[in-house]
Design a protein around this nucleic acid. Structure first.
Lengths: 214, 214
DNA sequence: AATAGTATTGATCAAGCGCTTAATAAGGCG
DNA sequence: CGCCTTATTAAGCGCTTGATCAATACTATT
């Protein structure tokens, strides 16, 4: 409507009309806002609107990122990093703790990390766009989390039922789908997500004859 | 490269350089190709590329659809229609058939309908875009399929374990996630999807003390 | 307070977008 | 065959997009 120029609307989100940030700080500020922005509108969201939200001119963005693609890469990096804590494989295989406890601890923690609108949506957007990071993430997840998880289940399963990798993927998928329903399809959040996760885990273990103490 | 004009590249997908189709036929042709096209590149895919794939000028598309939004609506309609057969509620509640058989029949049929790249991706694209059709579809699915399914499970569950709606959503989500992995994240298809579905159903039923004959 | 370095701006470009319209030609009918 | 309807085209308008770059003005330093 009034788009006569690309000048910032006086300031950013808050009231502080600061200018001239140190480059590292400004760069991070741009990425942070880009994460929120792209998660909301998709990766095709335009740089002018992003700049407007930052309270900054559009051209400034291209001072920090040579191309929009480069900005998106930075968004991926920011969002994917730290999403899989490196000590989980170890904790998942600690047989001094009952498997059920380990599973509940893992999925409680993991779901608190990924049941987040920004992560869920950007993961889905990038997956649809065919970003290789997605496939690498899922391969990594499969190898480092689900495969050990399969071995742990096998170790305590009753002899007549042997779990397969697909069973573990199914457990995982059922849990992840809670977040998909909420953040992609915008359905209401379950009353007690942690409880639903516990029930999913219990059903999984129950089938393989693993006893559950209440 | 050679994009000097919007003229068609002589013909469409095949070698037939036919022109002047009857309007109804042309309209359907456009929608069909749009489904494939948007499923591949997303709903922001541009009409010029779509026209190129059709072997037709871009302006022709706007002879059949006033706006791009209208075309997308037609794509939704085409893709959503017939995805939920109306006789399923009835078949799911036919207690002359064992619940396991009913579940397997339903999910075998349903998965063969939705584990399809075009449907999966357009459903996800439209979900991310916030299309109301998505939420209506899921509400419908919840009321017409999952709710009866919950009642059926309750009816045969052992008295100490009572299933909740979230359990049914979890069963459903775990199964749907097979298709998501394959078509959104482009991971390899499981060797025997039908078998994995049957296992998911068996785990679900097993937990509620429902016996399974082999 | 003057200066230098640089973060930021403002104006602009070329390409791509949805969409419009007048001209064209395909093909059924007399 | 020649006409007439209309499906289709060709050209282009107005706007938005990612990206560029010289000019500007903030801030640290002396």
């Amino acid at each position: 409507m009034d788009g006569q120029t690309d000048s910032p609307a006086l300031d950013g989100e808050d009231g502080t009309a600061r200018k001239r940030l140190p480059p590292a700080e400004r760069r991070q500020q741009i990425v942070d806002e880009a994460v929120r922005f792209f998660a909301e509108v998709g990766l095709e969201g335009n740089t002018r609107e992003l700049a407007r939200r930052l309270g900054v001119t559009q051209s400034l963005i291209f001072n920090y990122f040579a191309t929009k693609e480069e900005l998106i890469e930075a968004v991926y990096e920011k969002v994917y990093i730290g999403r899989l804590a490196p000590d989980w494989p170890e904790r998942l295989t600690d047989r001094s703790v009952p498997l059920r406890e380990r599973l509940i601890a893992f999925y409680t923690e993991y779901s608190s990390l990924i049941f987040e609108r920004e992560w869920m949506r950007i993961f889905m957007f990038s997956g649809l766009a065919g970003a290789s990071l997605n496939q690498r993430y899922l391969e990594h997840l499969g190898n480092v989390i689900l495969l050990p998880l399969l071995a742990e289940t096998e170790a305590v399963a009753s002899s007549d039922k042997s779990p397969k990798m697909e069973d573990v993927w199914n457990l995982h998928g059922g849990i992840v789908y809670i977040g998909i329903r909420q953040h992609i399809y915008r359905m209401p959040e379950p009353a007690k997500p942690q409880e639903e996760i516990a029930r999913a885990i219990d059903r999984f273990l129950h089938y393989f004859g693993i006893e559950i103490e209440h």
